[in-house]
Amino acid sequence: MAEHGGHTPGTAAVSHGAHPNYWLIGVVLSVLTVLELAVTSSYVIRLLNMSEFVTNVALLVFALAKGAFVVAYYMHLKFDSRVYTTMFAVGILFALLLSTTFILLF
């Protein structure tokens, strides 16, 4: 059989047969973006008495959540082979080490 879903037969990787509700993921990403805009609005900041630090942390948390949804569901890492996840994770880890070094140096 021809390749299907990027895996040769007999591999442990999960095929693309399993997939989430993409529309729902799209709605979740949109809602998270609305929340990002909301926590930066002066009305919400006054209403919740949010400090700049709390606002910034909330923004980073929303961004991380959106990123996780994109990687896991749109890029299929949740359903694909762990090898792909490992490959990407190594890059992210190296990027974090490099970033930490930059921040410490400058």
Binding site: E3, G6, H7, T8, G10, T11, A13, D80, S81, V83, Y84, M87, F88, V90, G91, I92, F94, A95, L96, L98, S99, F102
Partner: peptide
Amino acid sequence: TLGLDHRKLGFWTFLASEAVFFMT
């Protein structure tokens, strides 16, 4: 040899390097 499509495996490797580039 991992039983994976080399185009996807190679592309994930490329994306890892891109992640380093953009994070920087």
